[in-house]
Design a protein around this nucleic acid. Structure first.
Lengths: 203, 203
DNA sequence: CGTCGCATTGATATCGCTCAAATCCGGTGG
DNA sequence: CCACCGGATTTGAGCGATATCAATGCGACG
């Protein structure tokens, strides 16, 4: 479990927030229940999930420390997905009403909030782009190129490869095989919890 | 080409907007060029696209009348995708600076803008959920259930089935076959430009 | 009337999914 | 310290769904 200074947490919200903790697997809110709060992940990890008819989980979003969740539900009456703590997590809970009021009264905060939403939007659109690619290899490459840091597009893995597979819309078996093959061919390199582009890769 | 009254266009922006027209295929802005404006689709259709290395188009978003484009690029220095008119289109162009200023000075507008971004976010997350489903049939069903209107989840198709196939992350051949098979089995019904759930479907 | 692009269907190849089994690794309890 | 356990990680084999290539019909439009 990683911890973060509340650096990304807007100062203006500090006064309205209360700190809450959840154990791994705990439910933070359920789809369909009335929206009452927006949350900020201080430590741990939270997942927004929906379920298909076959009961399979679809992870809409995996929120790491420094991210908001349910920020898109501010203006809707009910939550549109389930939120569950994926690890023991510490959150800041902000009542929707307080946040809305702040949006109306605090110009700087409103500006920040617009920026937060826009960033989320760009990030999710990136994921759509990735899921639109047909092959597993392309998705892995796209992930590294768009999310990786530095000249080698290094990407530090949050949680497990199994989770990454879900993020990429693949089964874990396919991801394991794909990574192994790409490593053999020098397309990528793997360290402990790190992926990066390898020498065999031309952009 | 459909036309829309500027009903969804915030009144406060009217004064700052200029009307611009593009023919089908025209480029509105390119990835990497400095962000100067946000656009609102009055009539026609605009696509936000990126290209894979093989040159294949990935449609990040298909904007119909009543929608904004580049609204997520407000706070970034450069556009992150190409925008092209997919039909002859009429847009309202709003300089980013004017919009930012309005965000700072007009409380009602700021509230509207936050709502617009949040709605977009929910919509794109829905698409992620859809693309995470593995089978073509599930994606079609999900589309109808989540985007369709009324008890039969009727969905009016903008543009072609070929486009829809791309939206669903499928090839057009597979979509044709899937729709034909689902219609045969009574799972869906098809009219001219309309899809809906059929009698054979249990939710 | 010719052309172009969408819609449709067929045949085939390929890739990812499924089921299955073995190994590794961290944590837990004796 | 060691045995045990559960989950992640791997690898294998086979199948099925989707991609790909190909051909045709159809309608719009010049």
């Amino acid at each position: 479990m990683k911890s973060t200074s509340p650096g990304n947490f807007p100062a203006a919200l500090q006064a309205r927030a209360t700190r809450v903790s959840y154990e791994a697997g705990a439910t933070i809110f359920r789809r369909g229940s009335p929206t009452h709060s927006v949350f900020f992940v201080e430590a741990g990890a939270v997942r927004l999930v929906r379920y298909g008819r076959a009961g399979e989980e679809v992870v809409l979003h995996h929120a790491s420390p420094g991210e908001f969740i349910a920020e898109a539900s501010l203006d809707s009456a009910r939550y549109h997905c389930d939120a569950m703590a994926h690890e023991p997590s510490q959150l800041l809970q902000v009542p929707s009403a307080a946040l809305k009021e702040l949006l109306d009264t605090d110009r700087d905060f409103a500006r920040q909030w617009v920026g937060i939403l826009a960033r989320q939007l760009r990030s999710v659109r990136g994921r759509v782009e990735r899921l639109s690619l047909k092959s597993a290899r392309d998705r892995v490459t796209h992930l590294l190129v768009s999310e990786g840091r530095g000249p080698k597009c290094e990407l530090v893995l949050e949680s497990t490869l199994k989770d990454l597979a879900r993020n990429l819309g693949l089964t874990h078996e396919v991801l394991y095989r794909t990574l192994a093959a790409m490593e053999r061919e020098g397309l990528i390199e793997r360290g402990r919890g790190v992926l990066s582009l390898g020498p065999g890769h031309m952009i």
